[in-house]
């Protein structure tokens, strides 16, 4: 498969090999009616192996979810068969309602409609902590 097989849509490239299904689920791509291709273990000069997601419809991607799950991923917006825009996604400083705090002592466990907000506290190791209780999130397991 090559990029220009999509006329209008989104290609998520440079996903860590094995990470595509997590992103597929977190971005609710299973709810889309259009074609979605999951390419696993594609050969990559830069990464050795990588995953790619191709979505054959222009959709709004939740960049916070994507940046949290797959920092370094490339988002290619395809228009009329061409790459109209290419963005490299860095891990977001703050994520709101992407993951939930699993600390049973945290106020988020009882307070009605309180947004779950996490801050990136360690860029090197990509550690996010709940702003309320400062607990470290357990990656991927806490996706809302």
């Amino acid at each position: 498969m090559i990029l220009n097989t999509i006329t209008n849509g989104v290609v998520l490239d440079h996903i860590q090999a094995g990470g595509a299904m997590d992103i597929y689920k977190a971005l609710n791509l299973d709810k889309l009616g259009c074609q979605v291709a999951i390419i696993k273990n594609a050969t990559s000069v830069k990464m050795g192996r990588k995953d790619i997601l191709k979505i054959c419809e222009p959709i709004d991607i939740n960049l916070d979810v994507l940046g949290y799950l797959a920092p370094g991923v490339t988002v290619n917006i395809i228009k009329d068969g061409k790459v109209a825009e290419r963005r490299h996604i860095d891990p977001p400083e703050t994520i709101k309602d992407v993951i939930r705090c699993t600390n049973p002592r945290c106020i988020t466990s009882i307070e009605q409609e309180l947004p779950n907000i996490f801050k990136l506290t360690d860029k090197e190791n990509l550690v996010y902590r709940c702003i309320y209780c400062e607990s470290k999130c357990k990656k991927h397991g806490d996706i809302k």
């Binding site: 002592r105 945290c106 106020i107 466990s109 307070e111 309180l114 309320y132 209780c133």
Partner: peptide, 10 residues
């Protein structure tokens, strides 16, 4: 004072 962590921040 609150038993839940983060309550005063809220």
């Amino acid at each position: 004072r609150h038993p839940k962590e983060g309550a005063p921040l809220v």
